[in-house]
């Protein structure tokens, strides 16, 4: 690991250590925050007991479903919009505004329409993630060098072969950036919906534990979510960077 990496690790260890110290020695009230070590123990016990397995499976299932729909549909929509420049120009103002408005405020509207079930959660997850994928697809298709279609003709490649062998790989790093954003947006939207209003799921369980003053349970699940989100985002980020480096693309 590099020097910077070691310093970073040290910073994180000291921060967690300071929190542990402050909690253990009463600088922070246990009713507010429990020591990190106790969070980890509580999480270990909870996972070993299997009590939360159903909720965990439910939440991550919804997240994966929402992200998968957003990525596949977003790519398809992006391809269609890219082929219709006039539609694309007309949609421009909507894309520029989309992430500026709190889309999440429409979650209760979806609950009103579809009832309190999985559907509105998946829908708000897809709605939050899909536009990032559409925009990344448009960007990726824009970045395909024009010379590639000439190369394709020199090699007498058909439309399908050109799309799969040349255009898709040329656009791939930009598409992946879209996937990365879709994953983190989808994750955030699903968890937020479960927190605010949901029949079940990790967000709901944490929010219930908060109401019941069940701090070990609350912090255990919080820790789980933070670990999973950080891990997934770090893997995607590392992959993204490596790809960009290999392709000589400036940091995305």
């Amino acid at each position: 690991m590099s020097r910077v990496g070691w310093i970073r690790l040290a910073v994180i260890v000291i921060a967690v250590g300071a929190l542990e110290f402050a909690c253990q020695f009463g600088f922070i009230n246990r009713k507010v925050v429990i020591p990190p070590s106790e969070m980890a123990v509580a999480l270990g016990k909870l996972l070993a007991s299997g009590q939360a397995n159903g909720e965990i499976a439910r939440t991550f299932g919804i997240i994966v479903l929402a992200i998968a729909i957003a990525v596949v549909l977003g790519f398809a929509i992006g391809v269609v919009i890219h082929a219709l420049p006039r539609l694309r120009q007309a949609l421009d103002p909507f894309f520029a505004t989309y992430y500026a408005v709190p889309i999440f405020i429409f979650y209760p509207v979806m609950v009103a329409i579809f009832g309190l079930s999985v559907i509105p959660i998946v829908l708000i997850g897809v709605a939050t993630a899909i536009v990032a994928m559409i925009m990344a697809t448009l960007n990726g298709l824009d970045r395909i060098p024009r010379v590639l279609s000439k190369v394709a003709r020199v090699h007498r490649m058909g439309a399908v072969a050109t799309a799969l062998r040349l255009k898709l790989p040329a656009a791939a790093p930009y598409l992946f950036t879209g996937v990365k954003l879709a994953v983190s947006y989808g994750f955030i939207a699903v968890i937020a919906s479960e927190f605010i209003l949901a029949p079940a799921g990790l967000g709901r369980v944490i929010s219930d534990a908060y109401s019941d003053f069940n701090n070990p349970r609350m912090y255990a699940l919080m820790l789980l979510l933070i670990i999973v989100a950080t891990f997934v985002n770090m893997v995607l980020h590392a992959f993204d960077q490596r790809w960009a480096e290999r392709r000589g693309i400036g940091r995305p």
Binding site: P145, R146, V147, L148, K150, V151, R153, V154, R156, L166, P169, A170, A172, R246, R247, G248
Partner: peptide
């Protein structure tokens, strides 16, 4: 159609960065 036996090298960098 580009006939068999003709090879073209373009002005733009047409190397495939993914390979």
């Amino acid at each position: 159609e580009v006939p068999d036996g003709i090879g073209v090298v373009f002005q733009e960098d047409a190397s495939f960065p993914w390979l």
